[in-house]
Design a protein around this nucleic acid. Structure first.
Lengths: 189, 189
DNA sequence: CTCAAATGCAAGTGGGCACTTGCACAAGTG
DNA sequence: CACTTGTGCAAGTGCCCACTTGCATTTGAG
C-alpha cells in the first residue's frame, strides 16, 4: 500500500531540494517539508536518505532515453541527435547531473547511479567512431571528440549557476554541430 | 611571527583536501592532519574554517595571474594566451576550480572567493569583444564565445575525474584555438 | 639565558543531522 | 464494526563537526 503521498511526488521533492540546496545540503527535513510528509515517514518508507536519493535520481533519468539508431551517412544529423539530447539534459537537469558528477568522485553509490548514462556514452562513442572511419570526422579518441562537442553545453549549464552574465538562452543544436564540424573535419575532406 | 609551518604550506594542504574530498567534506581535522599541524592551531591562526578556505583559495589563484595586455591584430595569438592560461589552470587546479564552481551556487562565501577570477573574465570579455569588432570573430555574447572556447578544456578536466576512459593528455592550446577559429569566423571573412 | 608568544595535546561544548521510537489517530479491508 | 497498516507528532539518541579552553612545552628574539 503506497501512502497518501505517492512515491513520485516525494522523488520530485527530493530533486527540487537537491537542485536548490545541493546534494550534501539536502537534509531529510527539507525533503520531508517539500514533500508535505513527516520526516519519520520518510525513513519508514525509504529506509535511509541514501536509498531515497538513489531512487529519486534514478527515476529522474528514466524519462531521458536517447534512441540512437545505427549511424548513417549524415554526420550532421547524427551529431544533432546527440547534441539535442545533451542540450535538453543539461538545460533541464543540469544542476543534478553536475552535482552527481562531482559527487561520483567521492561516493561509490553515486558512481553506480551514473553507470547507466555511461552505457549511453559508449553508444555515442560508436557513432563517433563510425563517422571517423567514414572520413567525416577528425580521428581522435572518441571521448575527446565528445567533450569538444558537448563541453560548451555543459559549461553553459554550469555557468548559468555561477555567472549571472552567462547566456540564458538555450543552445541551438544545429548551430553547435555546424560550428563543431567546421573545426573537426579531416584535413583532406 | 609566522609559525613553524608557513601559511603557504597550510594553504596547499587545504587545496589538496578540497580537491580530494570536496569543499563541504573538507574537515578542519583532515586539513590539520594534511598540514602536519594541530587543529587548535588552525583556529588560532586562521580564526575560522571559512576564513582559512577563503585565504587558501585566494592564494591559490594568485600564482595564476594572466597578463592580458591590450589585444592586438592577431586573434589566434590572443586566444592562445587565454587558452594556455585556462588549460594550465584546469590541468593543475581543475579539481578545486570545478568544486568551487559547483559549490558557489549554494554558498555565498564560495561565490565571494570566485569574484576575483570573475574580474579576469571581464578582461577576457574585452579581448573577445575587440576581435569581434575587428571582424575576426562571430559576434555573440562574449561569455558565450568564452565557454565555447574553454568549455572542452574544463570538461576534460572534469571527465578525467569521473571517467577513466577520458584523455589524460594535456590539451594543445594552439590546436584548440585553430579548431575553434575554424568554427567561429564570421561568414564573410 | 630569559621571557613572551606560538604550538601541541586532550578534553569539552554546542549545534546540526540522520535515524529511532512510542503513541495516538486516520484510513482502507474484511 | 473490528483490525491491520500507515501516518503525524514529539521527543530522543548518537555521531560528526566547527570551534574553545586550560595547561605543558617549544621556540625564537633580545
Amino acid at each position: 500500500m503506497a501512502g497518501r503521498v505517492p512515491d513520485e511526488k516525494v522523488f520530485d521533492a527530493v530533486l527540487a531540494v537537491i537542485a536548490q540546496q545541493g546534494y550534501e545540503r539536502a537534509t531529510t527535513r527539507a525533503i520531508a517539508d517539500a514533500a508535505g510528509i513527516n520526516e519519520a515517514t520518510l525513513f519508514r518508507r525509504f529506509t535511509s536518505k541514501e536509498n531515497l536519493l538513489r531512487q529519486a535520481v534514478r527515476g529522474n533519468f528514466k524519462g531521458f532515453a536517447l534512441d540512437l539508431g545505427s549511424p548513417g551517412d549524415d554526420v550532421e544529423a547524427d551529431l544533432v541527435t546527440i547534441v539535442s539530447y545533451y542540450a535538453r539534459l543539461y538545460e533541464t537537469r543540469g544542476g543534478v547531473v553536475l552535482t552527481l558528477m562531482r559527487e561520483a568522485k567521492f561516493s561509490p553509490e553515486v558512481a553506480a547511479v551514473l553507470a547507466e548514462p555511461e552505457k549511453l556514452l559508449e553508444r555515442v562513442d560508436e557513432v563517433i567512431l563510425h563517422h571517423q572511419r567514414r572520413g567525416a570526422l577528425v580521428v581522435e579518441p572518441p571521448r575527446h571528440t565528445f567533450f569538444a562537442l558537448v563541453g560548451p553545453l555543459m559549461m553553459r549549464s554550469l555557468a548559468r549557476r555561477v555567472d549571472r552574465r552567462a547566456t540564458q538562452a538555450p543552445a541551438d543544436p544545429v548551430a553547435v554541430v555546424r560550428r563543431f564540424l567546421d573545426g573537426h573535419r579531416p584535413v583532406g575532406a
